Simulated scan of single mutants.
Amino acid sequence: MQKRAMIIYNPAAGKNKFRKLLPDAERILTEADLEVTLVPSTPKQKSTTEIARHAAESGYDIVIAAGGDGTVNEVVNGLMQVEKRPKLGILP
């Protein structure tokens, strides 16, 4: 079974530098034989904490927080709400 990674990113962080960075991150992870899901954290969606918790509950192997310290904090808080936690990655 192919391992899965979710990148939770804040599109407002870093003055939109993620538009250049995310395709490279996705390509590198895909080349490492991971199934990659990109999820933006926006005010209109669930909170970043809920997205991270749902990723863990859904069996993702890796959850990557892409953004500033607020994004990382919310992802960590979401992962701490479940017993079986995926690996955490940080893409500043």
Rank of each mutant, 00 (worst) to 15 (best):
G68Y: 06
E50Q: 13
T42W: 08
I28Y: 13
R53W: 13
G14E: 07
V76H: 04
E26S: 02
T49E: 14
L29M: 10
I28C: 15
K15H: 12
R4C: 12
D24M: 02
R4P: 06
K20P: 01
T42G: 05
T37Y: 06
G70I: 09
R27H: 12
V36Y: 07
R27Y: 00
A66Q: 04
G78M: 06
G67S: 14
F18N: 07
L34I: 01
I28A: 06
D69C: 01
A5T: 14
I8R: 07
M80D: 00
K17C: 09
L88H: 03
K84Q: 14
N77H: 06
G68H: 13
V75Q: 15
L29F: 14
L88V: 00
R85A: 10
Q2C: 09
Q2M: 13
L34H: 05
N77Y: 03
K44A: 10
I8Q: 12
T48N: 03
E57N: 05
G59M: 06
E26W: 01
G59T: 06
D69N: 09
Q45F: 11
A25M: 06
L38V: 04
K84S: 05
K87T: 11
H54S: 15
E57I: 09
A12M: 12
N10Q: 05
T42F: 12
M6K: 01
T48S: 07
T71Q: 04
P43I: 01
M80Q: 13
K87Y: 11
L29T: 03
R85C: 02
A56V: 05
R19T: 09
Y9N: 02
P86C: 02
N10T: 03
D24Q: 15
M80V: 00
G70Q: 10
V82N: 07
H54V: 04
N10M: 06
A13Q: 09
H54C: 12
E31V: 00
K15W: 11
A25N: 02
L21R: 10
N16V: 03
G59C: 08
Q2N: 15
K46V: 08
K87A: 10
V75A: 12
P40M: 01
A13T: 07
P23T: 12
I64Y: 11
F18Q: 02
Q2W: 12
R4D: 01
N77Q: 06
V39F: 12
D24W: 12
G67Y: 09
K15F: 11
Y9R: 01
G89E: 07
V36L: 00
L91W: 01
I64D: 00
R85G: 05
T30H: 13
I28F: 13
L34V: 08
I51R: 07
E31D: 08
K3F: 15
Q2S: 13
G68D: 09
T30C: 00
N16W: 14
I64N: 01
K17S: 14
E50S: 11
Y60I: 01
G59V: 05
K20C: 03
G14S: 06
R27T: 00
P23A: 09
A12F: 13
K44I: 07
R27L: 11
R53A: 14
I7A: 04
S41P: 08
P23W: 08
R53G: 09
G59I: 09
P86L: 00
I28L: 10
M1S: 04
P92A: 04
V36H: 02
T48F: 10
R4A: 15
E74A: 15
E50C: 11
K46I: 15
E74R: 12
N73V: 05
E83N: 10
I51V: 07
L22D: 03
D24H: 12
Q45A: 11
